[in-house]
Structure formats: C-alpha cells, structure tokens
C-alpha cells in the first residue's frame, strides 16, 4: 500500500467512524418526540434521578479531587516503601470491569472487618445513597490521580526548591507555588472526574442496588426504563447525561482558555 492510499484510507476511516458516532448521538435527540422528552423531563422519577445524580457526582468529585491531589503529589515527589505497589493498586480499577469493582466493594462493606466495624458504629453503606458516592469515588479516583500526577510531573522541582530556599515551608510552597502551577491539570481532572462519576453505572448498580426513586441516578434511570420498555424515559436520561457532559467540557475549555494569565 503506497503512502497516498494509506493517507486516503486513514482519513476516510476517521470520517466514517466520526460520522457514525455523531449520528448515534444525534439519534438520541431526533428519534423521540419532543413532547415525550418534555413529559419525561418533568416526571418525578427523572427530577429525583437528576437531583440525586448531580448531588452525588458533585460530592464524589470533591472527595476524589481532595484525595487525588495529595496522593498524586506523594507519588510524584517522594520515594517511599511500597510506592510501586501503591501505583499498581491505584491503577487497578481502570482495568477492572466496573461490575467487578462494584462486587469487590460490596464484599468489602458487607463481608469483611471494615463492614463489621462500620456496622458496629451504626453505619450502613450497602444499598444506600452513600454507596452511590463510594462507588463513584472508586470508579473515578484512578483517572483523577493519573491526570494530577502528570501535571505534577510536568512541574520542575526547582520551583519548589526556590520557594523553600526563600523561607517557605513545604506546605506553604505547595499552596503558593505548586497548586497554582498545576491549576489546569486540576481543572482537567475535575471535569473528567465529574463526567466519570455522572456516568458511573456498574459499580453503583452492585453497591447501591439501583432501587427505583431511592438509589436511582441517571444511568440507573436509563437502565431501569430500558428494562421496562419505557424508551422515552431511557432516551431522556441519555439526553440529560450527554447535555451535562457537554456543559462540563465547555466549562473546561473556558477555564483552560484563561491560562493566558501567565503571559499578561
């Protein structure tokens, strides 16, 4: 195959796949009737699911970022015993099927000392709203750590050295210098985390149970309604999920556009 035909082939393939994907997304918007979508949007189930989704995803995103920043910093800046193992374990959920992650979490919180301990203090996780947050947290955490870690790795340690030598402690330096320098990495990982948590399904289904109007978040609404054959509701939850992701990405682009603050 000469270069010209390969060029033609690769471009044609890209266009075909993109077109197919675009058509699939658009069919979400054009297949159902507008009234059907409007009605589904106003249903109490959809409003409950949307509200619960936004609340749990926001909370788990906050938790993920709060945990991912120090973990990524430790992995990037310090050498310690077991670092390689920690890195591998942290990355495991990315390779795990989500359902297996959910099952593993279900066992952790029901059949181990962790579950017993929580039960002793009167805390139950399995099949509750907390389970949604926990499942979302573990689904998204590895991605967030990866992005923030890459951002820390991109910052020369010399910035921190200079700040320390000018009289600032490790934490003050982290706050004054490191965090502002990895700001874009943190925005990126926040958006990716939010998108991941909004769309988390398998682990949530297993750990939180996917109960109608109790632990029902948007992907669960989609799943439940497809099972009942209620296509209108299923499609509407799909549209809502896509719209939220789209807004998140637009917001990210906007925030990233503001990075010219370095070049004023």
């Amino acid at each position: 195959m000469n270069f010209f035909t390969f060029k033609f082939f690769s471009i044609a393939l890209s266009l075909c796949v993109t077109l197919l994907l675009l058509m699939a997304i658009l069919s979400l918007f054009f297949v159902p009737k507008f009234e059907e979508v409007l009605e589904a949007l106003q249903s109490s189930e959809m409003l409950y699911s949307l509200k619960l989704s936004l609340m749990t995803a926001s909370l788990s995103t906050l938790l993920v970022i709060a945990v991912a920043i120090p973990i990524a910093y430790a992995l990037s800046r310090y050498d310690f015993f077991g670092k390689a193992i920690l890195k591998t374990v942290m990355n495991l959920p990315m390779a795990f099927p989500e359902l297996v992650l959910g099952l593993a979490l279900l066992l952790l919180f029901s059949r181990t000392y962790v579950g017993d301990l929580l039960h002793y203090f009167g805390i139950s996780i399995v099949f509750t709203k907390s389970a949604i947050v926990i499942a979302q947290f573990f689904t998204a955490l590895p991605y967030a750590i990866r992005i923030v870690y890459a951002a820390f790795e991109g910052i020369s340690k010399r910035y921190e050295n200079v700040s320390r030598s000018l009289g600032y402690t490790e934490f003050q330096t982290f706050k004054n210098i490191t965090i502002p320098l990895v700001r874009n990495g943190i925005y990126a990982s926040t958006i990716i985390t939010f998108a991941r948590t909004m769309g988390a399904f398998g682990a949530v289904l297993i750990l939180a149970g996917g109960t109608y109007m109790k632990t029902e978040i948007l992907p669960i609404t989609l799943f439940l309604n497809i099972s009942y054959g209620n296509l209108g509701m299923a499609i509407t939850s799909g549209i809502v999920l896509i719209t939220i992701s789209f807004i998140a990405i637009l917001f990210f682009e906007y925030m990233e556009g503001k990075k010219s603050v370095f070049e004023d």
Binding site: S156, R158, Y159, N161, V162, S163, R164, S165, L166, G167, Y168, T169, I177, P180, L181, V261, F262
Partner: peptide, 20 residues
Amino acid sequence: KNIEDRNISIVYQDYVLFPH
C-alpha cells in the same frame, strides 16, 4: 537544618521564575 531556615538563596540556569 530545614531548607527554609537556612537563608541560602539559589539561582538556576533556567531562571525558575514563578510564572503566575
């Protein structure tokens, strides 16, 4: 001794000015 308590300044080849 802690780095921040030494009062020793350093200048690098690549300047390392805080860009923000």
